[in-house]
Design a protein around this nucleic acid. Structure first.
Lengths: 333, 333
DNA sequence: CTGAAAGCGCTTACAG
DNA sequence: CTGAAAGCGCTTACAG
């Protein structure tokens, strides 16, 4: 069962490989090849069950029709869903997607970029890691088509697709204020990524405007020790800040552990303390209380990122502002 | 910023591309190239920031070092987790993974197989769809390296990795019997896939052995109309089979909707009716009752499938039974 | 209307 | 110890 190549077809038909290629790639405009010959070649190709070798085509064209997608962790449904829509959109345009997981490590991210570059990917969609800016700068300097997603580096002029985190956190906090919470805590990662920072800023500004900001209610947790830190923070707040009547969870993952701990400590959620978080979770459907959440338009984010990347690859100039902040609305129930 | 090739290096060093290739690929055994020349070439390659073009290497070697992974839907955490471990394991062996979603459609599956073949993937890991057997047979006949995962076709001699669904369903049902349930219902998809069939068989046999089998308690739901069908089935059971005191949910997805509907109808889970299901969900942590579940060893499944595929690709003969059924234990709390 | 030739970036016998 | 040549499977000017 040898694979059949253009050469085999050429031999059978008794014509040059150039002619076969011309016909099979549909580049036979203005009657370069006669109708009969053209038909014959197509028939033989079909009979021999010819499948073009896209690797060879890629080597020739310099286009692999493949992109690299770097996410933190594909087993996380947020990234899984993002990957789903990116794959769907890229496939429509004829691109395959190679997915890799950075595990939030900039070393990994850098290594994977190299790997994928040597595989000649046409571009990247990346969820950048906290300290990975230099790797991204490298790509930008080398004019590699690139779209950042979910997060971004404000100082870089590179297409980025994310939600307006400031706006979302502001709105979420505003909601808690509107339902008369006075002492609103924030649980957030302690890293310096802009998207986290903007969530904190949105929270802080909403409270400052209302004259309710209280620094002691901001609790930062480490990604690596998430569970311990979150449980510790909730416990600390329950003991030291008995006046707390609201919590904004800056990510869904933080919310899941946080709420678990709150239930454990017998908080009555929505009564003693109101909460809001980012992203919905299946678990919410089973809780006896409703949890308002910021809804991120994941499908839109994935599709937009894909389209921007394709434009870059195909050299379609766009003079837009590169940072695309989508609106993420609050779902109140 | 042109990409530098082996040719550029050869030119700079003043040597043939063959020599450069020899040195850079580490094939310079038995002193084919002198130590000094070798060092010089390596240095120049490094200075020029040479990155080998793996596409060209692949064309030459006939190995793309890439595999195709076909899952139903990467946004589903079960498949996302599977993909995570497969990617991790394949990467260690130098393979990249292209992921595509079949959406449970055999037409899609067939299309994607063609796509990936023309991209010269070295092999496939596939979650096969219900009516996709003929596509799989094709691959087997053409001796394409292939591992099926999560599901299988009993009639085909092809490496398959899944849990022992019969055993798992049997054990789950046995558990309900042991806690004195007498009327145990089953909610399961109405398709004819072997893994579903075996879950049904495990359920039925456990009940038959205990003299408790009751055909009227088996409710089948359609994948396409999952929600309506599950809600309908639960409602029907609650009205027509008030003697029901246990339910086995044949998948986690069915369980999530089913339990939601049970709560809606004011069932007291674990008291009026005990339930067991497949796979854990985050939501379980928030329920006021514990839900026993069958724990699938997803990491093991992904890793084993990857290792089997690599063996096939590298032509390492194994005379084992091709179907690998891993044990999935019941987690009781 | 069709073919011979060169080339994409590599590797691999073969010669010397 | 090193180089010239052929080839992996395609496409693309260039000739005729």
């Amino acid at each position: 069962m040898k694979k059949v190549s253009i050469k085999d077809i050429a031999q059978v038909v008794g014509v040059s490989t150039a002619t076969v290629s011309l016909v099979l790639t549909g580049k036979n405009k203005n009657g370069r090849v006669s109708k009969e010959m053209s038909e014959k070649i197509k028939n033989v190709a079909h009979e021999m069950n010819y499948q073009p070798n896209r690797l060879a085509m890629s080597l020739q064209s310099g286009r692999s029709q493949t992109i690299g997608l770097l996410v933190a962790d594909i087993s996380n449904p947020f990234f899984g869903t993002l990957a789903f829509y990116i794959q769907d959109e890229m496939e429509k345009a004829g691109y395959a997607v190679i997915i890799m997981n950075t595990d939030e490590s900039d070393v990994q991210m850098d290594r994977m970029i190299s790997l994928l570059k040597s595989r000649q990917v046409d571009g990247f969609i990346i969820v950048p890691t906290e300290f990975g800016e230099s790797s991204i700068v490298q790509l930008v300097n080398h004019h590699v088509p690139l779209v950042l997603i979910d997060r971004y580096y404000p100082s870089l002029q590179v297409d980025s697709v994310l939600i307006d985190n400031y706006q979302a956190a502001y709105e979420a906090t505003r909601y808690l204020i509107d339902i008369h919470c006075k002492k609103i805590a924030l649980l957030i990662y302690d890293n310096r990524q802009p998207h986290m920072f903007e969530r904190e800023r949105g929270y802080a500004n909403a409270l400052k405007e209302a004259g309710l900001y209280d620094e002691g209610l901001v609790k930062k947790v480490r990604y690596k020790f998430m569970n311990e830190d979150i449980m510790g923070a909730i416990t600390w707040l329950s003991q030291k800040r008995k006046d707390m009547d609201g919590i904004l969870f800056a990510t869904n993952t933080i919310a899941m552990t946080g709420i678990k701990q709150m239930l454990h400590l017998n908080f009555r959620i929505g009564e003693d303390v109101s909460v809001v978080c980012f992203d919905k979770s299946d678990a919410f459907d089973f809780m006896p209380f409703f949890i308002p959440y910021i809804h991120q338009p994941i499908a839109d984010m994935g599709r937009l990122a894909s389209q921007l990347l394709i434009k870059q690859i195909e050299n379609i100039k766009v003079d837009e502002e590169p940072v695309h902040k989508l609106i993420a609305g609050l779902v109140k129930g």
